[in-house]
Write a protein that binds this DNA or RNA. Structure first.
Lengths: 187, 187
DNA sequence: CCTACCGATCGGTAGG
DNA sequence: CCTACCGATCGGTAGG
């Protein structure tokens, strides 16, 4: 792992714990066992760290969505795959995902605009899948915005629960979360 | 409204937008059309503002939960009432709820401990309702933690969607959200 | 990767 | 509610 990679990883951990604004370059340097000034040999500044962390994981979602859209499965199956996608990314990028969720508003300039665009496109793609599922009768004819809101609320929170889970519990989650989100909890 | 109330309200708006750590006492003073030093005639410091905002709305949830527990309705009806409770609080305390959700980790000392305790009790009470619903057969015999996770994820996010909604859309939400959360979206 | 340092800004206080 | 100010700390640079 390059030194820059190590800095990004450590920064994601600290940002997750205390938030971007509350973490200083001196905090980050101390966690890396170096001085603040030395960080600037690897990164241009605090903003670059934030932008890199967030946009990397944002692109993971976009790539995942593209793959789901390419297959010709049912809307229900696509929704199921997206739920699995969120669980997988939450497992692999737990800290970065936390930063994306809590500190995206501290992005500035072009990275901010890029993040907003990626998120808007992702939500639109997700909505289209739900709409097609309503059309085919797979989903109830309810308010699509409310359906999407419920799904994304839970999917965006997964990173909060994943770290506490064992491997077998994560396996359970992959089975039960699609069931709960799509078919509900009532008998 | 007392001057202190005005300060708390303005602070909640700013904290919601930029986060506790990124808002300075000078920002808050400017939004109140006064100088930073003058704030200290009404509040003891930045921490007191944060603690007051968060604990007030946290107690709203505890009070609401107590009322729901007192009635002798079914578990399903209780879960429905809790969903309505979250919508109502999100409507009345939108900014404070945002602060609770995003900045609780910046609480210090006794207020931090109190918040953690209130949250733990609330989640435990919610879990008991779900468990009793499983026992009576109202809910599927699934992992209770996963059920609770899904419900709370969505309920905690409501404040993000409420401000964009019209009165009629909020009425729709009160009808459809319990349906989606409890009976799912599949036909 | 370090020491030394910059101007700016932070939360908060003194005293009126 | 204000002016004036405090020590501490911020993100970042110069120069080695």
């Amino acid at each position: 792992m390059t030194r820059k990679r190590q800095i990004l990883k450590t920064a994601a951990q600290l940002f997750k714990e205390r938030g971007y604004s509350a973490v200083t370059m001196r905090d980050l340097a101390a966690a890396m066992d170096m001085k603040a000034a030395s960080l600037y040999n690897h990164i241009s500044g605090k903003q670059e760290i934030l932008a890199t962390i967030i946009l990397e994981v944002a692109h993971e979602f976009t790539t995942g969505m593209d793959m789901v859209e390419e297959n010709d499965k049912s809307a229900f199956a696509k929704a199921e795959q997206l739920i699995i996608l969120h669980i997988k990314i939450a497992l692999e990028y737990t800290d970065a995902l936390a930063v994306l969720n809590t500190d995206w508003m501290h992005l500035e300039g072009a990275p901010y605009q890029e993040y907003i665009t990626l998120r808007k496109e992702y939500e639109l793609d997700f909505k289209k899948i739900l709409e097609s599922g309503i059309k085919t009768g797979e989903f109830k004819a309810m308010n699509v915005e409310t359906m999407l809101f419920n799904l994304l609320s839970t999917l965006r929170s997964i990173y909060l629960w994943i770290p506490k889970k064992s491997t077998t519990e994560v396996a359970d989650l992959k089975k039960e979360l699609p069931q709960i989100l799509l078919t509900g909890i009532s008998s």
